[in-house]
């Protein structure tokens, strides 16, 4: 009797695990995994930028076309395209609590923002290595290439825009 109860329990547990996975597979939410992710009017880097999203922002996946994904931005009414490399299926936890850390250590569904190698570690590295100067790296990061510059460069050079889905 007890064994039979256990069998039923096991079967129901397995059933719910399967259901859990099916639910996870149907999940269409994705997270922006770059500092700034642009939603564009067309599946191309030449597409007009409709809105800029931040690291960890969630979007609803609507459609896939090559390396581009059409998404909708919750609570904004904005729908547009973003390159797959800017997105992850993981949920990015911006301010992680104890539970998130232990979960993230054993799951590939969560990523913790600001954990591991981060600004604090870089700061510590700078203190330990005062001769390593980050000035040029900071200067490099400030170089911005505008969409206009890219379009002119392509046109003048007889080139065409790449962009994953070509």
């Amino acid at each position: 009797m007890v064994t039979r109860f256990k069998t039923i329990l096991m079967m129901s547990v397995l059933f719910s695990l399967t259901a859990l996975c099916a639910y996870a597979a149907g999940e269409k939410m994705m997270s922006v995994q770059v500092k700034q992710g642009q939603i564009r009017s067309a599946p191309s880097f030449l597409g007009r930028i409709m809105v800029s999203l931040s690291y960890g922002d969630r979007v609803l996946m609507l459609e896939e076309k090559g390396s581009w994904i059409r998404v909708s931005v919750p609570h904004s009414g904005v729908e547009g395209w973003i390159h797959t490399s800017a997105l992850t299926t993981k949920k990015i936890v911006i301010r992680a609590g104890t539970k998130d850390v232990s979960l993230a250590a054993s799951s590939d569904e969560l990523a913790l923002a600001g954990k591991g190698f981060n600004k604090q570690v870089e700061q510590e590295f700078k203190v330990k290595n005062p001769r390593i100067d980050f000035t040029w790296v900071d200067r490099m990061e400030k170089i911005v290439v505008t969409p206009g510059q890219i379009q002119r460069f392509l046109k003048e050079g007889g080139l065409s825009a790449g962009g994953g889905d070509r």
């Binding site: 995994q33 770059v34 500092k35 992710g37 880097f45 690291y55 390396s67 390159h83 490399s85 800017a86 990061e141 890219i150 460069f153 392509l154 080139l159 825009a161 790449g162 962009g163 994953g164 070509r166």
Partner: peptide
Amino acid sequence: VLAQASELPETFGG
């Protein structure tokens, strides 16, 4: 221009 035509056009800091 080249990075945008690669398979990884978007990185965290570009």
